[in-house]
Write a protein that binds this DNA or RNA. Structure first.
Lengths: 257, 257
DNA sequence: AAACCAAAAAATGAATGCAAAATGATCGGA
DNA sequence: TCCGATCATTTTGCATTCATTTTTTGGTTT
């Protein structure tokens, strides 16, 4: 029916409709989404999140249609959703562009992420089990190992998984979905730029993580909320400082052409 | 340009693409969205949020096309977006249904709202001006007046505006957008059910609001975060208790037919 | 040579058409 | 009479087609 020889790297972390939006459906109906539209949506989202298109670059319908071997209709639907999710911008009569994250956008995103993690921690304290905490501790020590070996990549991954675990422990799917969406928006930047600065924060970050674990063990909700928010705030500072010179989102016109 | 003789309370709180998703575009490009798709999206969203379709009711494409006087293509795009926003569910080959909010869904939504307001308060403390606080105080006294007169509707509106002001004071558009989306999801329930119980909480709620104002005046971020979250948590309890018997989201099949 | 205007080419936005699936209705059997 | 199966109708999903708008390109003018 179609070529279908796409780029498809691995499937990404985003669950389903990823949108900060909402989980697709849960009222006892179907589970998977075998529809073409859903399939395209996931693949296109992954394609964008993984940074296959430069910041501010154009997202040509025609090309993507060939790439996915479909007509424009389902692709355009996917584009509309991605725009709603905040991954791309839809310019009237001028097509879609990958959303350009300026300094201020990043700050806002980190703050909201901080707020959500803060909430997740608070909620987690209400119902988290000792086993879940043990698992997070395990990840923490694993991360500590990577820290000692100065293995940035693995450290980063462990770190990410810890935060995911906390969010999962909140037992709030709505929260999880929104969190996943925002994480997707940031991921592009994270992979490229964010790395370097974070390195200088390693020691500091490890200490913060210990404080987080400590508050979690004591189920100290409010305290954990504060600690998590501040942790993200510090991350924010590091991330934003890193992309210093960027005026706002000005390099858009030069890239995707 | 259009009939618009809907229930229309006031154009809803949702700004543009409303999606918890994201603001449409801000990188120095266009402002308004004169496109048909955007127009339809807004109108359809309002139509759903305002409760013109019963919970779990079907959203027939054909009918809506006639109603808006457009073809199916732009309408289907709008439906996809609304699904991403969490307002409706898209069942494969079976059309769209207004999302049914079960007890658990409501709890989750209220908690996330609480987390977001909590965050908003924390952020607001960093930059809020005396004037903004004064404005919120003004609204508070206005609300107090409605409380004394037992004017539920006006009280409710003032209350809502106070919370909106706090979110606005956070100076975080991303947060504002996500907040607006969640507010939209809850609104349907809010209007109908939520009212009654809230009444019993009036005195308590007023006290909480005073505590919020107090913390805000002192710019006590963490404390305000706690207070706001707890305030929403109490609201949650009231709201959920109210729709007591509802199993989860079971009355779906009986309504919209 | 640079800038401006005009026409062609391409891309977007929306409408229509067609195949597949689901819903509803009728008919047959126990 | 009640239940289940077959067939017609409706509805959904996607492709294709049509109408604008934008962008490019070529020619002209200053």
């Amino acid at each position: 029916m179609a070529p279908q020889t796409t780029v498809a790297t691995m499937k990404s972390t985003i669950p389903e409709s990823g949108v900060p939006i909402a989980k697709p459906a849960d009222n006892g109906a179907e589970r998977t989404e075998p529809s073409l539209h859903g399939e395209i949506l996931s693949r296109l989202r992954d394609y964008v999140v993984e940074g296959n298109i430069p910041d501010g670059g154009r997202v040509p319908e025609r090309q993507l249609c060939e790439m996915f071997g479909i007509s424009r209709t389902p692709l355009r639907e996917a584009l509309k959703v991605l725009a709603a999710e905040g991954l791309i911008d839809l310019l009237p009569n001028r097509g879609a562009r990958v959303r350009q994250l300026g300094k201020r956008d990043l700050e806002e995103l980190f703050d909201v992420m901080g707020g959500l993690e803060s909430l997740a921690g608070r909620l987690a304290c209400e119902t988290i089990t000792d086993e879940e905490i043990a698992e997070i501790e395990r990840l923490h020590y694993e991360m500590y190992g990577h820290y000692l070996h100065r293995n940035m990549h693995n450290y980063f991954q462990a770190n990410q998984r810890i935060h995911e675990r906390i969010v999962a422990a909140s037992r709030n799917e709505t929260l999880r979905t929104i969190y996943a969406n925002l994480a997707g928006r940031i991921r592009r930047v994270r992979y490229s730029a964010n790395f370097a600065r974070e390195r200088q924060r390693w020691t500091e970050a490890m200490r913060e993580h210990e404080a987080i674990l400590d508050a979690l063990r004591r189920r100290a909700g409010s305290e954990l909320a504060d600690t998590l928010f501040q942790h993200l705030r510090n991350k924010r500072t590091a991330a934003v400082e890193h992309l210093g010179g960027m005026p706002e989102g000005a390099i858009a016109e030069t890239t995707g052409r």
